[in-house]
Design a protein around this nucleic acid. Sequence first.
DNA 1: TTTTCATTGCGTCATGTTGACACAATGTAG
DNA 2: CTACATTGTGTCAACATGACGCAATGAAAA
Lengths: 266, 266
Amino acid sequence: MNNLVPGFYMKKNESISALLNAGEYNFLPSLSVDCVIFGFHENLLKVLLLKHRHLNMWALPGGFIGKDEPTDAAAYRVLKERTGLNEIFLQQFHVFGEPERSEKEFHLQDLKKDGINVTEDLWILQRFVTIGYYALVEFSKVSPAPDTLSEKCIWWDILKVPSLILDHRKILDKALATLRMQLNYQPIGYNLLPEKFTMPELQKLYETILDKKLDRRNFQRKILGFQILQRLTETKKGVPHKSPYLYSFNLKKYNHALNEGLNVGW
Amino acid sequence: MNNLVPGFYMKKNESISALLNAGEYNFLPSLSVDCVIFGFHENLLKVLLLKHRHLNMWALPGGFIGKDEPTDAAAYRVLKERTGLNEIFLQQFHVFGEPERSEKEFHLQDLKKDGINVTEDLWILQRFVTIGYYALVEFSKVSPAPDTLSEKCIWWDILKVPSLILDHRKILDKALATLRMQLNYQPIGYNLLPEKFTMPELQKLYETILDKKLDRRNFQRKILGFQILQRLTETKKGVPHKSPYLYSFNLKKYNHALNEGLNVGW
DNA sequence: TTTTCATTGCGTCATGTTGACACAATGTAG
DNA sequence: CTACATTGTGTCAACATGACGCAATGAAAA
């Protein structure tokens, strides 16, 4: 094997072995969580991905569920480990339960390249059903950290996502579709924008998620109508052109809207 | 044991034992599906429940997932077994993954009453994460059938649901909340009403699900605006007062609306 | 047979929401 | 100090929604 950085590979192999050995006793069998972590930076929607340690492919941050751990807690843990963040918006959105999504051969090859020989009945090689979660996080607060099975962890522009392993592309697409739908009856932005932000920034966020241009003036009217924003007396300095007002979310009203919904159709 | 109907108990015990023996090899561990099956009859929203074989409590139809069975297929199978129906609207809506929702003692007591002694490491006594599905079915086409662990299977008025086992009440509530939300951006009724129905019947369905009175004339205007209905030349006969027109769904447009959504907010 | 009345079909009107666009004010760059 | 991109605010027509009127229907009561 082309082991240019022996220490690195050593450590990796040790921790992978540790995972493999402990996993059967520590984790619920057959069930995993995968997280689609969205961020927003420089007017672009980003998603946090992990580089596969062998292949030129990427993966969603994921993990297993402790035997006594709530599934939601497992997702929060994965998020904490990859981003360093504690309190963020996290929501399950879909279960992916096709037998075909688990590819035993895929993982066998991986472990072989790690120099690890395992038997076919190893827990991690079995069929896994995964619960998809999506998270909205504040880009600037995230410190991306790879996991045991990956060599790096970085943000990708949602429009430039590279080739993903297994069915992760499908999971990502479903997360984005869910996010777009939720935009219709939930406020959004608190976990994606900094504390203080401008109306054009909020609009860019919506436009990016929806992949659609919105009218500046109508957007402002509608958003303000939700009554979840607080306009500050300050304006944003150091930007070209007219300095826009800064806004912050009125958290009380924001959370109320989160619970009650925005566009009650009936 | 107070075994008044020996034959019944015998058969039950045999099939329960068969389930317990075969389960570990046939099913995915730790994962189950539970179905909230909604029907509509005599202007009332109904839900199909199973009577627990010992307790004076009821349960949602549920089941386990075959080792090579898609999770959705497992839910369809449960539905087929309890209702006799094949093609129905079925959708996963939430995963219930708290460790506390699995009560080992609960099941141990049950099996003891069945006269079945098991060890604590039996697969069915372990923690289970369950995927909640909800189904909309045409009441008149359903032939309710109990499962191995139940003594009967009947429809309950949604407003008179009895005491449910474990966290099934929570699952039911979440299903109803989801259904109400989906009403805002999805057409509904095709799987709940007969082939031909009247406008007042459709309105009653909406009112029942939403638990809210709607204005007759505004309802008609809005529904017709969706362009998913076909008005027939016939009217409904044999009813008091003025005989209302019959409608049927334009399936092509109905399905298109199902995929594209109704109220695109942004 | 005629009257009563709940119900249905169809329509109106005031109000609220949305889409499209105008114009003045602001701040940077040339 | 002028040009220009950008922001703050407002207008207006089109459309959607909520509240309600009224005539037609058909079974039941008088």
